[in-house]
């Protein structure tokens, strides 16, 4: 599965399982957060990645991380 920000490219080249991230330079991070909140965000990304890996897909499929109210 693929964690990336530019999902339009990922879909176009046929990546089957895609989890969108928040910026090109930090696929598994978000520098705008505190270190603790950033690690929690990374955990949510990876949890979603595992859900994607356990899901049958037939074409490029985007698995959004559900938005949570930010503290």
């Amino acid at each position: 599965m693929l964690l990336c920000n530019l999902i339009s490219i990922a879909e176009r080249v046929g990546a089957p399982r895609i989890v969108p991230t928040r910026g090109i330079p930090y696929p598994t991070g978000d520098p705008s957060l505190t270190p603790e909140a950033e690690k929690a965000w990374r955990r949510r990304l990876l949890d979603r990645a595992l859900e994607a890996l356990a899901t049958t897909v037939h074409q490029p499929t985007v698995f959004e991380v559900p938005e949570e109210a930010r503290a």
Partner: peptide
């Protein structure tokens, strides 16, 4: 500009 994330693009 060419921003660095999809939403901004």
């Amino acid at each position: 500009p060419e921003p660095v994330n999809q939403a901004a693009k």
